[in-house]
């Protein structure tokens, strides 16, 4: 029965030690602190790209090393990537659809007041 854990994976355990996991956790915390600093620093045009890159790096570290995607069978990575690609495509499609819609669908407060009967 002892072999079940590894047999269930189809792979050996990830070659990561407790110390390495803690170092990864510290790196994630440092990136979060830098993100916070960037959001207050007012870096202008590079602020948003910088924040998105740091967010993607954190995402990648957690997925690859904490979720062990780096050490898993390729089919797991492909499965997850399909979800991410479809979600990104959905995001871009919806944003493109709404940002190219010139119709103002918002309900203005004065619009609702003007439609109310005069007192």
């Amino acid at each position: 029965m002892d072999h079940e854990a590894s047999a269930g994976h189809g792979h050996e355990h990830p070659p990561t030690t407790i110390r390495q996991y803690i170092i990864i956790g510290v790196i994630l915390a440092i990136i979060t602190a830098v993100e916070l600093w960037v959001s207050y620093a007012g870096l202008g045009a590079i602020e948003i790209p910088l924040l998105l890159i740091m967010s993607a790096v954190k995402f990648g570290i957690v997925a690859a090393l904490f979720m062990h995607l780096k050490f898993e069978h390729k089919i797991m990575t492909r499965m997850f990537l399909i979800g991410i690609v479809l979600a990104t495509a959905l995001l871009l499609a919806v944003i493109a659809l709404f940002w190219n819609d010139a119709t103002d669908n918002r309900v203005l407060p004065d619009r609702s007041e003007s439609s109310a009967p005069a007192h």
């Binding site: 269930g8 994976h9 189809g10 069978h73 089919i75 797991m76 499965m79 997850f80 399909i82 979800g83 991410i84 479809l86 979600a87 990104t88 959905l90 995001l91």
Partner: peptide, 23 residues
């Protein structure tokens, strides 16, 4: 595939969750 079906199921579920949160 040599992949445990429970683990594969979780990854498929997480892929669908990507779309959920993507929306």
């Amino acid at each position: 595939l040599g992949v445990d079906n429970r683990k594969l199921l979780m990854w498929i579920f997480l892929a669908s969750e990507c779309l959920f949160f993507g929306t």
